[in-house]
Design a protein around this nucleic acid. Sequence first.
DNA 1: CTGAAAGCGCTTACAG
DNA 2: CTGAAAGCGCTTACAG
Lengths: 345, 345
Amino acid sequence: MTRRPRIRDVAELAGVAPSTVSVVLNDTEGARVAGSTRDRVRAAAAELGYVPNSLARGLRTQRSGTLAFISDVIATTPYAGQLIQGAQDAAWEAGYLLMLVNTGGDKTLEEHAVRALRQQQVDGALYATMYHRSVTLPRVLDGLPTVLLDSRPAEGATTFVVPDEQQGAQSAVEELVRHGHRRIGFVRDLHDGPAVDRRLRGYEETLTAHGLEVDPGLVVRERSDSAGGDRAAGVLLDSERPPSAIFAFNDQMAIGVYRAAAARGVRIPQDLSVIGFDDLYVVSSELTPGLTTMALPHREMGRLAALALIAERDGAEPAGEMLVPCPVVRRGSVGPASPAAATPH
Amino acid sequence: MTRRPRIRDVAELAGVAPSTVSVVLNDTEGARVAGSTRDRVRAAAAELGYVPNSLARGLRTQRSGTLAFISDVIATTPYAGQLIQGAQDAAWEAGYLLMLVNTGGDKTLEEHAVRALRQQQVDGALYATMYHRSVTLPRVLDGLPTVLLDSRPAEGATTFVVPDEQQGAQSAVEELVRHGHRRIGFVRDLHDGPAVDRRLRGYEETLTAHGLEVDPGLVVRERSDSAGGDRAAGVLLDSERPPSAIFAFNDQMAIGVYRAAAARGVRIPQDLSVIGFDDLYVVSSELTPGLTTMALPHREMGRLAALALIAERDGAEPAGEMLVPCPVVRRGSVGPASPAAATPH
DNA sequence: CTGAAAGCGCTTACAG
DNA sequence: CTGAAAGCGCTTACAG
């Protein structure tokens, strides 16, 4: 393998100075180069297969053309890929490449990693978390343009991109109301957090907006896994006045709702409508009937975050909170409310 | 934010030349520097929070300290994370950072991306695919140390890291034989490929090794999704002499096996044992009973690939084929063979 | 044991 | 319209 050509090789072949090659290949503003010279330079570069060395360029311009993608354990979840994909696509279009680091939530590793990333002169950082939560940025990130992905800053005014949880919950409930449901249960996570808080608010406000009663007895707290969903739905289905529809905090809990229904001979969607959240596709598409659920717009979030980061790096004002809408994905778990709804048989 | 310190700043503070700082901080071989000088340099570096600029270093040393991770659509599958995580961990330990590019299988994009990556002077490339298959490396990669991840080279002697499919199938069948099964069905993918070919061979050879009949009627070809698994298992369960156990090509097909069994009143594992492949955890752990399956060692594969790549970059001979064992993950779908096995009731 | 010089491969004022 | 020079921040022979 022969050595890669340098700018000087192109200059010699074209019979010009290296600086002229640089100016031509970069289309430098305000530099006047004769058309014939341009052509000669371009031809020479093409002939040699010249590709500029980004390290040398970065050293000179103080821009590396790379962005850090730092995440806790995100890359190991099924969603992560979309977040990365979206960020990468937007970065790519703007001429940036992503340097990836997964910290596994280890703060010491995180600090070392950020140091290594800064050493590589990344132009900015995307800081992503596994699910929507509140975080404190590590100090090593100080001074580097940073955008949070799927989390919000516990302090400070860092730009952040998160799903519009409240709108998602609102759309979910409206989907049910539209099908005639009037008593709608909500099986929620045990713990509070940005996601559950906003989904709960969206649920309550939408009920109110439609003149429906907000019955605390219809909201059951449980662990946010399928077993928890099973138990929570059990409480609802076994109550005096069972709901005709259940909105599950997430798809894992929705699996449990299916189980609770099956155990009681309650059919979905004939006797009970179910709507989930997250669109964990391996789950939602494999259930019978398929689960109607709110999708988390990970790809779009990744795109927007990268775009915002690049803009800030280029001097734009921090964008602050960026909410990305969650679209409904209709499968088969929502049907019309029937008078006999949720009555065990 | 004040400008980051350069090596000259450290040198001035320590009262030495920049070259001495470099030698001390890099622990350069064969360079004799007085202990007291070393201490002064280290103290000065620490005081200023000095971090060398990798771009400048890379320009000089012709090593960027970065590795490319190129994949088709891998980052969007649940497995991808582990592959990346393993590669990243190993790279990190060796002082490398990963630059990620997802091509989505687009060859034009791939070519541009590789060019950009080479422009960034990556020291080597990991080329990963979504599932075990045969690939032809793009020419733009010529001359760059490369290791294939989860795929094998259609031509050439590129080092590649893949799961040991045959051993996996062997372990799966032995797990069933150990439980007394003698008639074991195999529901396989419609198409041939490195994975299915080797799993089939492992299945057949293990049966033979145990003196069991290899009945072509026990191998059913279908689409490798749950619907396909459902149909294939149906054929097996409805046959004259149904098997007491089914080995599914992958977990998606295993879901279908569960469905076919349920539809016929065949209980798992009492009447029928099932073992899958892939350990698609969202699936395998949510089924009832939990699915016993062969895990794809993605994390380990990522580790080994990165290690092999770095070794080659450092002058080692290409390692060729690297097989990584697939461990069995026991849940609840394998039980003892019973005489009444798989008899519908 | 330590320092001065050259050079990695670019880009950017600055001359002409 | 084009070229010569300086410099980005390091490391590496080479002197001394």
